[in-house]
Amino acid sequence: MIRTGEQYRSSIRDGREVWINGERVQDVTRHPMFKPLIDIRARIYDMQHEAATQAVMTYEENGQRHAIGSQLPFTSAHWEAKRKAVDTVMFDIGGVVTRVGDETVGEMWSLWDGKDILNEIDPRFAANIETHIKKVIADDPFHVSANTDPKGDRSKRPQDQDPDMLVHVVKETDQGIIIRGAKYETAAAYSNQAFLKPTIANWGDSKLSDYALGCIVKMNAPGVKHICRTGFAGR
């Protein structure tokens, strides 16, 4: 499936909790500090449908069209096709924009390549990453990557300072895990989902195991709060 720009905008008008400059944002698609980038992301979605750019922006598989940026790359031609799509977008918008979703899906491809290693740890992990990749291809979400942790005091363990500074598991239920903590992530406030992962070392320490987690987080999930820095636009 390939989405339209309006379908993307509608998907982020979902009551998510977004704050900027101390104020709650009621509609990120209309807020002057978010709207310019949202409009560009919406434009990319629309280019997937337009006759002049569809062949560059999408590929066909099993009778369905999908975003070229989400295609699993197996050959140099696949990478060249992605580069051509990026160039097409840059020429269309007449500028440079980053973090529009296509580049962050690639982090899951490395886990796809490492499925044998994941299976050695837990067979569910390889199956999960395959499920996530296929869902991105099928649903065409705006997918980002939640990497950067608040730094705090690097000489101390997370538990020896504010335990909620870094993302960690606080409870496990039959439906999954409940997590708490903070991440820095560009574009999270107007994306659909984020691939969350830890970025500090020494996960072999059992005392840190609750902090060693990777998962897909829906950006409108209950309890997710976006606290945004001031934007360059709309000042």
Score class of each variant (00 low, 15 high):
Met1Tyr: 07
Thr4Val: 09
Glu6Phe: 03
Gln7Ser: 10
Tyr8Ala: 01
Tyr8Trp: 06
Arg13Asp: 05
Arg13Gly: 02
Asp14Met: 05
Arg16Pro: 01
Gly22Asn: 01
Gly22Met: 07
Gln26Trp: 02
Asp27Glu: 06
Asp27Gly: 06
Val28Gly: 05
Arg30His: 12
His31Asp: 10
Phe34Gly: 05
Pro36Asp: 05
Asp39Ile: 00
Ile40Gln: 08
Ala42Met: 03
Arg43Trp: 01
Gln48Glu: 14
Gln48Asn: 12
His49Pro: 06
Glu50Thr: 10
Ala51Phe: 09
Thr58Ile: 05
Thr58Asp: 07
Thr58Trp: 04
Tyr59Phe: 07
Glu60Gly: 06
Glu60Asp: 09
Gly63Tyr: 09
Arg65Pro: 01
Arg65His: 04
Arg65Cys: 07
Ala67Asn: 08
Gly69Arg: 00
Ser70Arg: 08
Ser70Asn: 11
Leu72Val: 03
Pro73His: 05
Thr75His: 05
Thr75Ala: 00
Ser76Glu: 10
Trp79Cys: 05
Ala81Cys: 02
Lys84Tyr: 03
Asp87Thr: 11
Val89Asp: 05
Met90Thr: 02
Met90Ile: 03
Met90Phe: 06
Met90Ala: 05
Phe91Glu: 14
Gly94Cys: 04
Val96Ser: 15
Val97Gly: 02
Thr98Leu: 13
Val100Ser: 07
Asp102Trp: 15
Asp102Tyr: 13
Glu103Met: 15
Trp109Asn: 04
Leu111Glu: 01
Trp112Ser: 06
Trp112Asn: 01
Asp113Gln: 14
Asp113Trp: 13
Lys115Thr: 12
Asp116Tyr: 13
Asp116Thr: 15
Leu118Gly: 01
Asn119Met: 04
Ile121Phe: 12
Ile121Glu: 09
Asp122Pro: 07
Phe125Gln: 11
Phe125Ile: 04
Ala126His: 13
Asn128Ile: 08
Asn128Cys: 12
Ile129Val: 15
His132Pro: 10
His132Phe: 15
His132Leu: 14
Lys134Ser: 14
Lys135Ser: 11
Val136Phe: 08
Ile137Gln: 07
Asp140Glu: 03
Pro141Ala: 00
Val144Cys: 05
Ser145Cys: 00
Ala146Phe: 01
Asn147Trp: 00
Asn147Lys: 00
Asn147Ser: 00
Asn147Arg: 00
Thr148Tyr: 11
Asp153Arg: 10
Pro158Gln: 05
Pro158Asp: 06
Gln159Trp: 10
Gln159Lys: 10
Gln159Pro: 07
Asp164Trp: 12
Met165Leu: 15
Val167Glu: 12
Val167Lys: 11
Thr173Cys: 03
Gln175Trp: 04
Gly176Thr: 01
Arg180Leu: 07
Arg180Ile: 11
Arg180Glu: 15
Gly181Asn: 10
Ala182Asn: 15
Tyr184Gly: 12
Tyr184Ser: 08
Ala188Thr: 03
Ala194Lys: 11
Pro198Ile: 08
Pro198His: 04
Pro198Tyr: 09
Thr199Val: 13
Ile200Ala: 15
Trp203Lys: 14
Lys207Gly: 12
Leu208Met: 09
Leu208Ala: 08
Ala212Arg: 12
Gly214Asn: 02
Ile216Glu: 03
Lys218His: 13
Met219Pro: 06
Gly223Ser: 09
Gly223Leu: 08
Val224Tyr: 02
Lys225Leu: 15
Lys225Val: 15
His226Met: 09
Cys228Asp: 10
Thr230Glu: 14
Gly231Lys: 10
Ala233Leu: 05
Arg235Leu: 13
